[in-house]
Amino acid sequence: MKINSAQAPNIAPAQFALFDMDGLLLDTEIIYTQVTQRIVGRFGKTFDWSLKGNMIGLPDTVSANYLVRALQLPISVEDYLHERDQLLRAKFPSCKAMPGAENLIRHLHNHHIPIAVATSSSREFFALKTSNHQDWFELFNIVVTGDDPDVKRGKPAPDIFNVAAKRLAASPQNTLVFEDAPSGLAAGIAAGMRVIVVPDPNMDKSRYRRAERILNSLKEFNPAEFGLPDG
C-alpha cells in the first residue's frame, strides 16, 4: 500500500539498506506480548496495544520503565526485566520469519546491495532470535545491536543507523531504512535517510505520516521504485 506520493525524480537512488529486526524481519513481537502478559497478569493487569504501541522499538530500559509506571506494577524495572529476559531466552529460538523478509534479503544480497541489521536487541538476544535463520542472516554485511559500544543512544535517536551507515561506508541520501516502529521511523529520519515502514496491523497508521512508504508486508516492496535491481 503506497501512502506517500511518488518520489521526486531528483532523489538519489538507493544504494544501501538498513533493517530493523523485531517485528520487521522476525516475528518476535508476539513473544514479547505473551511474556509481558504472563508477568503483568500476576498483578491483575492487562498488556494491550494501548501500552505496546508506545513501547515498540524503544530500548529495553525505556520501555520497561514506561510499563512499570503505566500499570503501577509493584516490582522494580530491574526485577521486571530480569524475569522477562529469563522467559524470553526460552522462547526466542522458536520465532518465525516475517512474510517477504528472507526473499528480500536474498534479493538484495544477490544484487550486491550492501545491507545491515540495526536492532535495539542485545547481541545475546540477536543470536537467540536468529539461531534458526542463520542461513539468511549471515548474508548481512553488518550487524549493529543496541548494546554496541558505539551506539550511545537508543531509538528514536539516530545513533544506531548512523553507526550502521558508517560501517557500510554509506551516505544517508543513498540509504533506505526498513522499520516497523514509530521510534525507528523517527531515528531513520533523524539520520537523514528515507524510511519504509511495515507497521503491525494494530498500530495507528497516523503515527507513520513521515514515512516514504507504508507497506502491509515486505512482500509489497518494489525495489525498482528506489533505483534498486528488480530482477
Rank of each mutant, 00 (worst) to 15 (best):
69 R>Y: 00
23 G>P: 01
142 I>R: 10
92 F>I: 04
80 Y>G: 10
55 M>A: 12
79 D>T: 13
86 Q>S: 12
101 A>E: 06
91 K>G: 00
84 R>W: 11
137 F>N: 03
128 L>N: 08
41 G>N: 11
78 E>K: 12
42 R>E: 15
28 T>P: 00
77 V>W: 03
116 A>M: 02
142 I>M: 05
132 N>Y: 02
139 L>G: 07
30 I>G: 15
22 D>K: 03
28 T>M: 11
33 T>M: 13
65 N>M: 05
92 F>E: 03
22 D>E: 12
108 L>K: 08
83 E>Y: 01
80 Y>S: 03
73 L>W: 09
103 N>D: 14
28 T>V: 10
128 L>K: 10
31 I>K: 01
62 V>W: 00
50 S>L: 08
83 E>K: 02
67 L>F: 07
33 T>N: 09
22 D>R: 04
142 I>Q: 12
51 L>R: 04
102 E>P: 07
89 R>F: 02
120 S>A: 15
99 P>K: 10
115 I>K: 03
118 A>L: 05
74 P>K: 09
76 S>Q: 06
111 H>D: 05
149 P>F: 06
139 L>A: 11
98 M>I: 08
125 F>Y: 13
114 P>Y: 10
82 H>L: 13
114 P>V: 07
132 N>H: 14
24 L>M: 06
143 V>H: 05
54 N>Q: 14
85 D>F: 12
75 I>H: 07
22 D>Y: 06
110 N>T: 13
124 E>T: 13
136 W>I: 06
98 M>V: 04
30 I>L: 05
38 R>C: 06
37 Q>C: 06
108 L>R: 09
139 L>T: 08
121 S>Y: 01
78 E>A: 12
147 D>W: 05
25 L>P: 02
28 T>Q: 04
81 L>V: 05
36 T>Y: 02
73 L>I: 10
100 G>A: 11
141 N>T: 14
23 G>M: 07
60 D>K: 13
119 T>Y: 03
87 L>I: 08
119 T>H: 07
64 A>L: 03
114 P>T: 08
113 I>R: 04
97 A>N: 02
138 E>D: 15
58 L>R: 13
97 A>D: 09
32 Y>D: 06
25 L>A: 11
129 K>W: 00
110 N>R: 14
105 I>F: 07
107 H>M: 12
96 K>G: 00
83 E>A: 11
28 T>E: 05
102 E>C: 12
137 F>W: 09
142 I>D: 03
82 H>R: 13
116 A>W: 00
29 E>R: 10
122 S>F: 08
94 S>T: 14
42 R>H: 15
116 A>S: 14
128 L>Y: 13
123 R>S: 15
37 Q>L: 02
120 S>N: 09
36 T>M: 08
95 C>Y: 10
89 R>D: 15
32 Y>K: 00
146 G>F: 09
49 W>D: 10
22 D>I: 04
103 N>M: 13
93 P>C: 08
144 V>K: 11
65 N>S: 15
114 P>D: 07
76 S>T: 15
129 K>T: 06
26 L>Q: 05
